[in-house]
Amino acid sequence: MDLTPYVDSLRHELAVAAEAGGNDDARALAERLTGPLESAARLTLLDALSAAMGEVTRELAPGSVDVRLRGSDPEFVVTAPHAPEPFREAREPVATPPDADDGTMARINFRLPAHLKTRTEEAAAAEGLSVNAWLVRAVSLALDTGARASPPGLTGWVH
């Protein structure tokens, strides 16, 4: 992404503001300031772009968008989320009725062994999500991809 048009626009706006001052001192000051302000303006634009891509990344999790510098211009690197591993036994997806998600929330108590709780918290933090948001997404992915309640590789009855 070329930042030059944005920096040039800022330079132009500074010159217009100096013209409004109506004297040569204001114009001379504006000309002296435009050079040093160019690098500050580029850094400020990069900070704004990085913050914006951080917000986009939080919404795309587990995918991400990173801002990298190529020369003096930023470039965006999009990382798509990994496709889930296919399950050994395919299941016909169940169609969700259109009115099934009415936006209401339900509360459940969920107990995890301490080692799984720690791993869950670490995974959520690594993706910039709350534990609740991470668990909601994990359950949704499991249900939407046809995950089975039994551990992979186990079928039938265990006595």
Rank of each mutant, 00 (worst) to 15 (best):
M1V: 01
D2G: 06
L3H: 03
P5Y: 00
V7Q: 08
L10N: 09
D24F: 08
D24E: 15
R27L: 13
R27Q: 10
A30H: 08
G35A: 15
P36R: 09
E38K: 12
E38A: 15
R42C: 06
T44P: 03
L45S: 01
L49Y: 10
M53R: 04
G54P: 07
T57W: 01
P62Y: 09
G63E: 03
V65Y: 05
V67C: 07
L69V: 08
R70D: 03
P74I: 14
T79E: 03
A80I: 09
A83G: 05
P84Q: 12
F87M: 06
A90F: 04
E92H: 07
A100T: 10
T104P: 03
A106D: 10
I108C: 04
N109I: 05
L112T: 05
P113C: 00
H115L: 11
K117F: 07
K117I: 00
R119A: 15
R119E: 08
R119M: 08
A125N: 14
A126F: 09
A126Y: 07
L129D: 05
L129R: 13
A133D: 15
V136P: 04
R137F: 00
A138S: 14
A142Q: 06
L143H: 01
D144F: 05
D144M: 01
A147Y: 09
P151T: 10
P151C: 01
P152L: 03
H159Q: 10
